[in-house]
């Protein structure tokens, strides 16, 4: 359809007033809410950090300084890498991958149960009990985890009472609390795409496979998982992106010696008062996660369109 007749039909269907409103609202959303902030960030990241008086002056030129810094550290040490930040960067991405895989492994059975096994009221109750905890503020939830995983928290008390541990284990220093908190933070974004995908699978297909002698493992790998692939990729993408970009959980649950990459970004913006470098760091994270998602999609033969289905 050519664009002209598309717009004519659009206005015919929605009327002039509503049609104009929709167009303006969508344009506002796309430009002001999505594109502009990102464009500012991109622009920021390629400029020197200057005191306000010099902004727009002769020194305010484009530079790769901040990206260079991320990789090589301060220019003084020639030929050396910025190992501190790069390590955090690598660790963040790796941990985000593991959190994503862990969430997938945890949520797939739950989503399958809700979508294909649980019936009616019981299933709805379970969905509700999954959602309700997320009515609580993200920061409160993180602090609750901190209390739970603390040296005097329920988990240590229980492990000590049952004799598994002799003395409290520092879950926070060892980052267990962080991974648990991150894993829990975006769990709904894994469950619901999986649930939607599995729910639309015809029960008869599962029964047909079973009737032909397939084991449960084969039924899942041959029938359910291929069918749910768009949901799996959509859930994994969201959890991965959000975990890599999470801030609250690492701030509250992270051990004293470990940093999440977003915390470095935050430091540049906040303590460092260097928004330009912060922008560059944020964009590095964004670009790398997008590239990783695209690579994963290529490997697993998922199309972008399917993911948003």
């Amino acid at each position: 359809m050519n664009p002209r007749s598309y717009f004519q039909r659009f206005f015919l269907r929605n009327g002039r007033t509503l049609g104009t409103f929709i167009l303006v609202a969508v344009a506002f959303w796309i430009f002001i809410m999505i594109l502009m902030p990102q464009i500012f960030m991109v622009d920021f990241s390629f400029r020197h950090a200057l005191p306000p008086a010099k902004v727009g002056g002769a020194e305010d030129v484009y530079t790769l300084e901040h990206y260079q810094y991320a990789v090589y550290g301060s220019a003084k040490a020639e030929g050396e890498y910025n190992t501190v930040d790069l390590k955090v960067f690598g660790r963040t991405l790796l941990a985000a991958i593991f959190v994503t895989l862990f969430d997938l492994a945890l949520c797939y059975p739950i989503a399958y149960y809700l979508a294909q096994v649980a019936s009616g009221g019981w299933g709805r109750l379970m969905v509700l009990s999954l959602i309700v905890p997320f009515w609580v503020n993200e920061i409160l939830r993180a602090f609750a985890f901190r209390i739970m995983f603390g040296t005097t928290g329920v988990i240590n008390s229980a492990l000590m009472a049952t004799g598994v541990l002799d003395e409290p284990y520092d879950f926070i220093r060892e980052d267990w609390a962080l991974y648990a908190g991150l894993g829990y933070a975006f769990i709904l974004l894994m469950i619901f795409p999986l649930y939607n995908a599995i729910e639309s699978l015809d029960k008869n297909q599962i029964e047909a496979a079973r009737d032909m002698g397939a084991s449960w493992l084969r039924i899942h790998f041959r029938v359910v998982v291929p069918f749910a692939k768009p949901g799996i990729s959509s859930g994994c993408t969201m959890v991965f992106m959000l975990t890599a970009g999470a801030l609250a959980a690492p701030q509250i649950l992270g051990g004293p010696s470990s940093l999440w990459f977003t915390q470095i970004v935050f430091q540049w913006f906040n303590q460092g008062n260097n928004w330009n470098r912060g922008s560059a760091y944020a964009l590095i994270l964004l670009a790398s996660t997008i590239v990783m998602v695209l690579i994963a999609m290529r490997i697993f033969k998922v199309k972008l369109g399917e993911t948003i289905r």
Binding site: D202, N204, Q205, E207, A208, A209, D211, M212, R222, V223, P226, F227
Partner: peptide, 13 residues
Amino acid sequence: TALIFQNLALFPL
């Protein structure tokens, strides 16, 4: 036994 379902239930993928 082998069952042929009312809606066939062929595997679409």
